[in-house]
């Protein structure tokens, strides 16, 4: 691999842009294919399939063997709310190889003591999300119950192609939330993307059980057939 190709591959990954390196195993020839360039590539079908699965693999075409090094951005979860549930989510997400970012401007909640080894941003969600960027490999979870904190995050998530959007709250709380989002200009098709009540229905009671049900739902959205690609 020449250095320019390797550098480009690393740069694309750092920018969280899906990229595939195609290697001709017979001759050693290589090319980098960015997501937007897949449709025009001679291996378009195979590239699209591998990227959707997020898996590297071999393909055969016209008697030649190609290896596809697939770089799908690492999936991550962005949570608003440095709360009990997100405390439980942090170690679970780590085990699942899901990178977790917690946003909460309320510095009484968002303390390093309560959240060791977690990326914790004590900013307002709209500011933090602008910098983080939301993409098809990001899940957004609103856990504060406080519209001042949750709503700006939800609005940003609904404008993005996040693969999962979830919001904590009873049906009544969610009903009021839908009214606010409608007033902000989001139609039913948009707000229908929000998983609420949040999490798989496993009868979760404790914060850790709720965290488990949310993470189960996120893994389902990531690995299941409805998985979105950027």
């Amino acid at each position: 691999m020449d250095l320019a190709t390797l550098a480009a591959l690393n740069a694309e990954r750092a920018a969280r842009r899906p990229t595939i390196l195609v290697t001709d195993l017979a001759g050693g020839g290589q090319r980098l294919v960015k997501a937007a360039e897949i449709a025009a590539d001679p291996l378009a079908q195979a590239l699209d399939r591998q990227l959707r699965m997020g898996k590297s693999g071999l393909v055969e075409q016209d008697g030649a063997s190609f290896f596809l090094t697939v770089q799908a951005p690492p999936p991550r979860i962005i949570v608003t709310g440095a709360v009990h549930i997100s405390q439980a989510m942090a170690p679970m997400a780590r085990l699942l190889d899901l990178y977790l970012v917690i946003i909460d401007p309320r510095t009484a909640f968002a303390t390093p003591e309560r959240f060791p080894d977690v990326t914790l941003l004590t900013e307002w969600p709209d500011e933090a999300l602008k910098r983080l960027g939301l993409d098809g490999y990001t899940a957004f979870v609103a856990l504060t119950h406080d519209p001042k904190v949750d709503d700006p995050g939800l609005e940003a998530a609904l404008r993005s192609d996040c693969f999962y959007i979830g919001a904590l709250g009873s049906r009544k709380t969610h009903g009021k939330r839908l009214e606010r989002l409608k007033a902000a200009g989001f139609d039913e098709a948009a707000t229908g993307r929000i998983h609420a009540p949040i999490g798989l229905d496993i009868g979760a009671v404790s914060p850790a059980e709720i965290a488990l049900s949310i993470l189960g739902e996120i893994v389902g959205a990531l690995r299941g057939p409805r998985r979105a690609t950027a």
Partner: peptide, 9 residues
């Protein structure tokens, strides 16, 4: 698959 990296590739 083992490939050289860098200018000597």
């Amino acid at each position: 698959y083992v490939e050289p990296v860098g200018t000597r590739a």
